[in-house]
């Protein structure tokens, strides 16, 4: 299949604003957007984009595909291309550094708002029930890709990814704060409900947060 890729380019050393560069790519059945991006890169090696694992576990390649927030490696071309064309843009909501690369340092720094580690109770006896552990399992699959922040973050309060981690920690029976942690999210129950709903449709790891409030 011949695919037209429109990739949003921006070089802070040269450009006044972003612009779309067109690439014509030959693609094969079952290839992903990341495969297409790499082919585009081979045509123009000055193109910058992040990638690593190519199996949706490292979270490097989050971007906008036809305006939808997705991981490039997780998106099959046959599922996302419309009329053999695709538009790729950097995630919204972050400072753009070059082409598809955005500044994620504030995103990672934002985790600190919620004390992002288990505060193990001194009387923890080394036992946890499988049921208790299962509650943590899904939220613990968060890959910190940044897509929820880019779509749902307001750049002021506790960030969405930090809230996900906080819920995972609040559910951990080892944690001495436990459910009290949720106050760190600084969100009203109604806001959390809206957040949970939006996250469900957006998260590439399909994390569904339980109702705790």
């Amino acid at each position: 299949m011949r695919l037209k890729l429109y990739i949003d380019r921006f070089d802070p050393a040269r450009d006044r604003k972003g612009y779309k560069q067109e690439f014509k790519i030959e693609t094969e059945e079952n290839e992903t957007v990341l495969d297409a991006l790499i082919k585009a890169w081979h045509q123009d090696p000055s193109l910058s984009f992040r990638r690593s694992c190519r199996s949706a576990i490292c979270g490097s390649c989050a971007l906008l595909i036809n305006r939808e927030p997705r991981l490039a490696c997780q998106s099959l071309l046959k599922d996302v291309a419309t009329e053999n064309s695709l538009t790729l843009e950097p995630m919204a909501g972050f400072r753009r550094l070059k082409d598809l690369v955005v500044d994620l340092q504030p995103f990672f720094d934002g985790l600190k708002d919620i004390i992002p580690w288990v505060l193990t109770r001194s009387d923890y006896n080394g036992l946890m029930s499988p049921e208790d552990m299962e509650k943590i399992e899904k939220p613990a699959t968060c890959i910190l890709c940044g897509l929820c922040d880019s779509q749902l973050g307001d750049r002021r309060g506790v960030s969405p990814a930090a809230m996900v981690k906080n819920v995972r920690l609040a559910l951990d029976t080892r944690d001495m704060m436990g459910i009290v942690r949720l106050q760190l999210n600084q969100r009203y129950p109604e806001e959390m409900k809206v957040f949970r709903e939006k996250l469900k449709n957006l998260c590439p790891k399909k994390i569904v947060l339980p109702e705790l409030d």
Binding site: T120, Y124, G126, L127, M128, S129, P130, M133, D175
Partner: peptide, 16 residues
């Protein structure tokens, strides 16, 4: 485990 790794568990609560 003490740092917070969510190891899967057996029915008796020990690490599976």
């Amino acid at each position: 485990e003490w740092m917070g790794v969510p190891w899967s568990r057996k029915e008796d609560g020990k690490i599976a």
